[in-house]
Each structure stands twice: as structure tokens, then as C-alpha cells.
């Protein structure tokens, strides 16, 4: 423990291109790129499939399949095939970000009160207005839940990138492992864990700031909304049977 603190306290470890701040920025940079790429793929697909209220099993199936992809295998394979660089690392991490984002967006949109959607259409909203004005704002808690889960996964796994001679906080882990420099490894582990927790906290604050106050309060309407857990998105984002608009006839 003392060795860990003295390693962290050493000013030499806080400067230069191999210092903690530089590694931290690298780590965040890969993570943000991967999350952005994952979101570009997952948000539109999740939103459209949720809006159409059909084909959910495809989302569930592919999200679960991607969850099972071993990150280390994907990363090493992409680097061997494409050469070391930002692109294979980002791609490999983005694959990790997709399942939670996809599941969160899909189930968020799919779970919006069917009465509100029916009313929106009945009042003369066009399909894109139904999606953007009603479904997505109401799905926001679950979408952000997915984002939190994705961010957590990506930040945690970005450490693995160091194995393929890439930067980020993982360097301290891998280099420490190679040279049996235990304080350096422990410092790297602590830094990654702290970063994950801090980002998680910031996203929780963001969620509080941008989700409509009407959607807080125990999730009376959306029983799947969970506040406070970034969590592994549910294995099966298919909602508990959502009641059909009452009075609907065959």
C-alpha cells in the first residue's frame, strides 16, 4: 500500500508523455471515440426498431451475441489485420459499446406508454415527430442508462489496449506486469477504477440534468427505469408485457 502511494506521489509520474495526465487523456480519448462510434450505430437502429415495435428479438439476439465477443481476441485480431493504430482500437472498443446502447435505446423507445404514442399520432404528429417529440424524450432515462453501461465497459476495457502497445492508463498495468513493478500495476488499476467511477458519477449528474422531471419519481410509468445503476443492461430488453391501449379492438 505504501509503495502504491509513494508511486502515485512521485512527481516524475505526473509529467511527460508517459505521465499520468497524458495517459489519462489518451484513455479518455479512445473511450469517447469508441462511445461516439457505438452511438452512431446503435442509437438509430435501436430507435427505429423500437418505434416500429417489431423485430425486437433481432436486437436482443444481436446485443447478446456481441456481449459475448471477447474483447482481447477482437483487439488482437484487428491489430494484426489492420496494423497498430487508433482505428482498430476504436473499432474493437466500439463493438463493446453497442450492446448496452442498443438495448437501452430499443427498450426505452419500446416501453413508452402506448397511450401517449397513440395520442401523439391522433393529434396529428408525423412519424418523425412522434419519435423525436414523444418517444425519444421518454426513452431518455433508459438510453442514458445504456450510455452509462457502455461508458463503464469501454473505460474498463480500454486498459486492454495497452497490450497491443497502445497508450492509455492500461500502460501502467501492462508495463508493471512485464517488469514485475507491483506499485505501478496497482496504481494503474486504481486509476482505471477511479476514472470509471468518476465518469459514472458525471453521467449520473448529466442524467439528472437532462431528463424531464416528469419522468422521475420512482418510475411509475416505466418500471424498467433504474436510477443509480449503470449496470449490465438486461439480458432481455424485451419489456414485461406492455399493456395494449385499453379499448383496442381486434
Amino acid at each position: 500500500m505504501n509503495a502504491l502511494f509513494s508511486w502515485l506521489a512521485d512527481p516524475a509520474h505526473w509529467s511527460g508523455s508517459a505521465g499520468i495526465p497524458a495517459r489519462l487523456v489518451e484513455h479518455l480519448w479512445y473511450s469517447v471515440l469508441a462511445l461516439a462510434l457505438g452511438a452512431v450505430v446503435a442509437l438509430p437502429i435501436g430507435a427505429l426498431v423500437g418505434h416500429g415495435r417489431r423485430g425486437g428479438f433481432l436486437i436482443v439476439g444481436s446485443a447478446n451475441g456481441m456481449r459475448a465477443l471477447p474483447e482481447l481476441g477482437l483487439l488482437t485480431l484487428l491489430v494484426l489485420l489492420m496494423g497498430i493504430g487508433l482505428l482498430p482500437v476504436t473499432l474493437a472498443l466500439a463493438v463493446l459499446a453497442i450492446p448496452p446502447l442498443l438495448a437501452g435505446t430499443y427498450s426505452g423507445v419500446r416501453n413508452v406508454d402506448p397511450g401517449a404514442v397513440d395520442a401523439a399520432r391522433g393529434m396529428g404528429m408525423r412519424e418523425w415527430q412522434v419519435l423525436f417529440k414523444v418517444e425519444l424524450p421518454n426513452a431518455l432515462p433508459l438510453i442514458l442508462g445504456g450510455l452509462r453501461g457502455a461508458a463503464l465497459q469501454v473505460i474498463a476495457t480500454a486498459a486492454v489496449a495497452a497490450y497491443v502497445s497502445f497508450g492509455g492508463l492500461g500502460r501502467f498495468l501492462i508495463d508493471g506486469l512485464r517488469t514485475r513493478d507491483y506499485p505501478q500495476m496497482a496504481a494503474g488499476a486504481v486509476l482505471v477504477a477511479v476514472l470509471a467511477l468518476v465518469v459514472e458519477g458525471l453521467l449520473a449528474l448529466l442524467q439528472r440534468a437532462i431528463v424531464s422531471p416528469g419522468l422521475r419519481g420512482g418510475g411509475r410509468r416505466s418500471p424498467t427505469v433504474t436510477v443509480g445503476r449503470p449496470a449490465p443492461a438486461p439480458a432481455n430488453p424485451e419489456p414485461v408485457p406492455v399493456r395494449e391501449p385499453a379499448g383496442a379492438e381486434p
Binding site: A116, A119, L140, S212
Partner: peptide, 9 residues
Amino acid sequence: IQQAGLFPH
């Protein structure tokens, strides 16, 4: 409609 279908947000 029944249950009003108000926009919760």
C-alpha cells in the same frame, strides 16, 4: 383516449 395518454415528460 382512455388513460388520457398524456406525455409524461
